[in-house]
Simulated scan of single mutants.
Amino acid sequence: MSFLAAIVKAIGRFNGFLGQILAWLSLGIVLVCFTVVVQRYLFSTSLIWMQDLYVWLNGAMFMGIAGFALLRDDHVRVDIFYRPATIQRKAMIDLFGVVVFLLPFCYVVILYSWTYVMRSWSLGEGSANFGGMPGLYILKSFIFVFAGVVALQGLAMAGRSILVLSGREELLPADLRYRLPGEGE
């Protein structure tokens, strides 16, 4: 069980690190968008590749931090049932949700996007806009990053649930434990 706790901690650290790094892209998005607006309205000019850049940075950031959002419980959930639940019940709900919904969803995302992304790589696809950015295939590859980080965090959630259900929650650091209603809100 301590090996499982180590895996849960490692995945949490990885997604936490990735989330903290990719969150800085939001500053880049704001700066690039501000530059585009200044160019357009003060200098009556526009660089199409810069317009592509802030949209692409936005897409990369949101796909890359999806696992971080899941780690922090920042995703949408029907709290009317989950919030008042006991820790054991939360663990059962999470384990069921990961196995029945989340991991199959990640598999389907990878399965159905594989051809789409690989075709983009084979074409060396770039922006559809004249003068736009090259390398759209890199952005499309973030679909795999999304599915990977969400699946990894799902495995960590399942591991956390198994530890709780087996009575070994003390192996988890405090920030990865379930909270009772009213705690940490």
Rank of each mutant, 00 (worst) to 15 (best):
R77A: 10
G124N: 04
A147N: 05
A151Q: 00
L70A: 13
L111M: 10
R13D: 14
R160K: 15
Q153K: 11
Y41M: 10
N58E: 07
A66T: 15
G19V: 10
R40Q: 09
S46D: 11
G182I: 03
Y82D: 04
T86M: 08
F62A: 06
L171V: 06
Y116L: 13
N15V: 04
L47H: 14
L163E: 05
L95M: 10
L4H: 04
L53A: 15
V98H: 02
D175Q: 12
R179V: 11
D175A: 10
Y178F: 14
G64R: 02
L111D: 12
R77P: 00
A151L: 01
E185K: 05
A69N: 12
F14Q: 02
A158K: 02
A85F: 02
Y107G: 08
L180I: 03
I162Y: 12
L22Y: 14
G59C: 09
D79Q: 09
T35F: 11
T35D: 08
A69W: 06
L111T: 08
G148P: 06
V78N: 09
R13T: 13
P173I: 10
S161T: 05
G184F: 01
D94C: 06
A128P: 09
I138V: 15
G64W: 04
Y107T: 11
P181F: 09
F96S: 07
A5N: 08
G97R: 07
I162D: 01
A85W: 03
F43L: 13
E125F: 04
F3G: 14
Y112Q: 01
G132K: 06
I80G: 01
Y116I: 04
T45Q: 15
G124L: 00
E183R: 01
Q51E: 15
A6D: 15
A5I: 06
I7Y: 07
H75G: 00
E169P: 01
F17Y: 12
A66S: 15
G97A: 13
D52M: 04
M63V: 08
R89E: 15
N129L: 13
I65G: 05
M118T: 12
L18N: 11
Y112N: 01
R119V: 00
V100M: 13
A5W: 10
L163F: 08
I93C: 02
L71I: 10
D79Y: 05
V145H: 01
V98A: 04
G159F: 02
G12E: 02
I11S: 03
V99S: 10
F101T: 01
I11D: 03
T115R: 13
A174G: 00
I162W: 12
V32E: 02
V99R: 02
L47Q: 15
F68P: 01
P104L: 04
P134I: 05
W114Y: 12
V32Q: 03
L18Q: 09
A6G: 06
F68L: 09
R179T: 13
I29M: 14
R179M: 13
R177P: 14
C33I: 04
S2W: 02
